[in-house]
Every structure is written in C-alpha cells, then in structure tokens.
Write a protein that binds this DNA or RNA. Structure first.
Lengths: 192, 192
DNA sequence: CAGATGCGTAGACAGTGTCTACGCGGGGAA
DNA sequence: TTCCCCGCGTAGACACTGTCTACGCATCTG
C-alpha cells in the first residue's frame, strides 16, 4: 500500500479537507482520516505528531483558499476602496457560509495549536490588506482600529448567521442587508 | 441554594459551572462531572439523557448569569440609550473575557442541542432590549438591522479578542478603544 | 550481498459517551 | 406486619477516540 503519486502527508490533508466539507468539523477524527486515506490509524503520526497538528494543516488549507478568494475579490486594486472592501466582505461571508465546516475548524482555536503555526502568517496579510483599504476609505480615522472592528463584525456576522442566530425578519436567508449595515457603519454612510 | 440539598440534577449543573470556569470547556467531560459530583458515570443519564443536554443545561446557567448582569448594566432604563448601550456592550465584553470557558461553551453550538432548548428564550430578550435601545438611539435606521450588526460586532470582538487575534498596537490588553470604535460606527459618532 | 533506514502496520492503553442489567432502599397497599 | 413496586444510583460492557511502542517490510546504500 504505497502512497500513490503524492506522499501520504499531502493525501491526509486532502482527505481532511474533503471530509470537513462533507461531514463537518466533528468528523475529522484522526482514525477516520487515516481510514479514508487507506492507511492504518498509526500512519499519520509519522507526519503529524499529534492530531492537532493534522487539523492545523487542514485549517491552513482553508486559510490559503480564503486568501486566494480574497485576492480575487479585491481584483487588481484599481477599484475604489469602498468597492473593494464590499467585495472583500461579501467574499468572506460567502466563504464562511459555503464552507461551514472548514470555517468552524479555522476558528476553533481549541482544535488548532494556539497560534504560531502559520495561521497568523496566513490570515495576517489579509488583515493588512483590510487595514490599508480602510485607511484609504476613511483617512480621518485610526485605520487599524476601524479595520479591527470591521473584521470582528464580519466574523461575528458569519458566526451568528451561520447557525441561525440572526434570523432577522428582513428576508429569508439574505445576509446582504446585514452586511451592508455593517459596512455603512464602519466606513461611513453611502456618500464617498 | 445549596446544591447538596437540591438533588443530583442541580448538583451536576453546579459542578459543571464550576468546572468550566476552572478548567475550560474541554474539561466538561460527562464522567469528570459525575466524578466531581461524587456519583458514578451512569448517574447523570437519569436526568440528562445525553451529554449534550447536560452541557446545554450548564450553558443555560451562563445565559441566565449574563442576563442578570445585562439587566444590572442597563440599570433602571432612565439613562439615555447611548449610555445604556455602552454599558451593555461593556458588560457583554467583560462577561465574555472574564468567563472565557463559559462563553466558549455558550456559543459552541456543536456542543449544545441545536436551539430549541431555551437558549433562544434566554438570549432573545437580551436581543430585544438591544433592538429597543438601538431604535431609540437611532430612530432613522432599521433598528433590527443595526442591532443585529452591533450584536454581531460585539460577538466578533469577544471572540477575536478572546484568543488574541486582535492585538492592535494600540495599547496592551485594552479592548475599550475597539469597543468604542464599534459603538461609534453603529450608533453614529459621539454627538447626540 | 549485507546492513541500515524510511514508512507503514498492529496492538496495547487510558479515556470517552452510551446502553443495559442489576441492586438497594423507602413508601404504599393488602 | 409483609409484600411489592419504583425511584435512583451502581457497575460493567461496548464501540469509539488519541497516543505510544514494538515490529516488519521494502528500498536504497555501502
């Protein structure tokens, strides 16, 4: 039973990404991942000393994917900051709601090795982009502060909406009004 | 008041509340709770058919405690809405950061039976209060929408700050500027 | 050809949540 | 009184989990 073309390490992460998308974060058992990868339950240990490190590797894939989508959302950076921020926010929300299991995994810090594992390195540039855009959209304010508040707002909307805690009477399952309200709040009302 | 006199059911919840405060949410093992309550691991089953129901009961205590603090924070309701909302937000943040384990438990919906367990009933009135205050503070806007966005913002700040993901350079561990920024954003800048 | 080493296997171990059978003790009824 | 029932907790089994350790097999190297 050799690993096919690619090594077992990558295959385990592949299986994990697939599994979390299919069945949620609680399905990411070490033994189940090994099973689906076609190896014994002890095999992952050669590449991931602990279960958390395997989960962290899987989560890193999520952060990478999110970074790709975010980069695509902001485009070439020629659009005005407000439009880029709107696109970024929509992208973030859509990612969180489309990949619920992965998103849960990414922000369940009790499942990940606490920081320092590249998660910061993967999500921080995204935050840097956010700060820069906010700085351009609102030159008057402390960009880091506003960006932090906005980022927290997006995160909170993703979380609360994700498990139905924010069923506002306004529409069925449309998070756009809520998102618009948040963007308006942090970036200032409509007018440039 | 004293748990030892009020039956095993309440004692299990007491032990759980104590345990989650002391050692975090991951320590809330069914068997460990039973151990600390001085009963066998099968005993809880008579009152809580499943582990999740016990955890939900513990979380309900958290929601109740939060509701009490929130009521105390808003006071008699004579203060102006903006001040009440500020107090409410501070109260919420402080609760989340002071009772990190309990807060994590309360919003880990994978640990709780999905809704319908009174969690909604316990947290909804708080949200209702929020909507009402926002409506008074910003009569121009859709109160439910703004309140939802603000609530999400508080939640996001609590989460991100809680695990150090928002270490803004502005000060060491003071979340007040961030909170002020969020409140300013959703309620409008300082001036009445 | 022989040895070493990379890589996966297989079993043990402590721990978990759930299920089931059992026992004990206190009332109520005859 | 005596008997029976039933609430309530015990104890063990079961299928899982993550971790650890000893063991092989294959491949490459000297």
């Amino acid at each position: 039973m050799h690993a096919s073309e690619t090594g077992l390490r990558a295959r385990l992460v592949d299986v994990g990404v697939d599994l979390v998308a299919r069945e949620g974060a609680q399905a990411l058992t070490l033994r189940e991942i090994a099973r689906r990868a076609g190896v014994s339950h002890g095999a992952p240990r050669r590449y991931f000393p602990t279960h958390l490190e395997l989960l962290s590797a899987i989560a890193r894939r999520g952060f990478a994917e999110l970074a790709v989508r975010a980069a695509a959302a902001v485009g070439d950076g020629t659009a005005d900051p407000r439009a880029q921020l709107t696109a970024l926010a929509h992208c973030y929300l859509r990612f969180a709601l489309d990949n619920r299991g992965m998103y849960e995994l990414m922000f369940r810090h009790d499942l990940l090795e606490s920081g320092h594992l590249g998660l910061r390195d993967t999500s921080l540039p995204l935050f840097g982009r956010l700060v820069e855009l906010v700085g351009r959209a609102r030159p008057d304010a402390d960009a880091r502060l506003v960006a932090g508040a906005l980022w927290a707002n997006l995160h909170g909307i993703a979380q609360l909406w994700g498990w139905g805690s924010l069923q506002l009477s306004t529409g069925a399952d449309d998070f756009v009004p809520l998102l618009r309200s948040a963007l308006d709040a942090h970036l200032g009302r409509e007018d440039a």
